[in-house]
């Protein structure tokens, strides 16, 4: 039966029925994964895409309104501000990667207890982001926070780090870097370990010092890992929401208006304003932005990433 289906009239018959049969078997075998993928990723995406052209109330069916949502979003200064905030946050968090390289190299040098260091750096990754945000919120409190207390000891007047829009994005970035360090460290650490030691031995015979080795051997050979980490960090930074939500505490936070990220706008639209169609539009625009940035990064990698 299967061979009939896969050999429609007018198409040249395959030499044996085997090929067609294998196709169907293969499809059947991956069907569970395929269906799961379709149900969990493809359908939500399609549904979001459709909704982005609609006016959808919280409950019940929506109405198509063409590109109204897109026009409204792109004409909203709040969107451009959120895009700026998100971009600034992303750039700042990317600065955490050099930091992660340094730490990864340092841990590599440690002769004993590497695992302990890795666990310590990894702890923030497995901690609930909400808990992390809360703790940092206390640390950064303008009147009673630990940071301002420490600053006051050395005579520097503190600021309202999480209640003044001039500082909030930087505060998010500090926490974001701290939270992301663990994962980056693991990936970069693995990259470091895969660099053959003979290269270092050979180069030191040629008279290269540590710094030269780092720039001529470590960095180029680590560049695929760095690239990978950069892609991951960029994508997750563009999707940042939790830190705004938790660290700015409440909708009454005076800095919130100027500290929103794109995903926060999405949350605001979907769950505060009850505008699901508009929220879908934000999600699609964010997707396009992330895709563009990632594509750009893939183009640029040719200039600096070294594959053997």
């Amino acid at each position: 039966m299967t061979s009939n289906v896969s050999s429609p009239v007018g198409r040249p018959r395959r030499r044996t029925g085997l090929g067609a049969r294998t196709d169907w078997w293969a499809l059947a075998m991956i069907a569970p994964a395929l269906i799961g993928l379709a149900a969990l990723y493809l359908w939500p995406f399609i549904s979001t895409f459709i909704k982005s052209f609609m006016n959808v109330p919280v409950f019940g069916p929506g109405k198509f309104n063409g590109v109204d949502n897109y026009a409204k979003l792109l004409g909203d200064p709040g969107f451009w501000q959120a895009l700026g905030n998100t971009a600034l946050y992303t750039v700042l968090v990317l600065l955490g990667i050099p930091l992660a390289i340094v730490f990864a190299a340092l841990i590599q040098q440690v002769s004993r207890g590497k695992a302990i260091y890795r666990v310590l750096f990894f702890l923030p990754v497995v901690t609930l982001p909400v808990a992390v945000g809360m703790v940092w919120r206390f640390i950064l409190n303008g009147d009673f926070g630990l940071l301002n207390y420490v600053l006051s000891l050395v005579g520097i007047p503190g600021e309202y780090w999480v209640a003044d829009a001039r500082f909030t994005i930087y505060a998010f970035a500090v926490v974001g870097i701290w939270m992301g360090l663990g994962v980056n460290l693991i990936i970069l650490g693995a990259g470091l370990q895969s660099i053959p030691t003979e290269l270092y031995e050979a180069s030191s015979l040629d008279g290269a010092n540590r710094v030269q080795q780092f720039f001529s051997i470590t960095l180029p050979l680590l560049s695929p890992s760095i690239f990978f980490v950069t892609i991951l960090t960029t994508i997750s930074a563009f999707q940042m929401f939790d830190l705004v939500f938790v660290m700015l505490g409440s909708v009454n936070n005076t800095a919130l208006g100027d500290s929103k990220t794109i995903v926060y706008l999405f949350y605001d639209a979907a769950f505060v304003q009850f505008k699901q169609g508009f929220a879908a539009t934000i999600a699609i625009v964010l997707l396009i932005i992330i895709m563009a940035v990632t594509a750009l990064q893939f183009r640029l990698q040719k200039k600096w990433v070294v594959y053997d």
């Binding site: 409190n141 303008g142 009147d143 309202y160 209640a163 003044d164 505490g249 009454n252 936070n253 005076t254």
Partner: peptide, 9 residues
């Protein structure tokens, strides 16, 4: 100020 009340409700 609102800033102070943002930090501490």
């Amino acid at each position: 100020t609102l800033q102070q009340l943002s930090d501490t409700e």
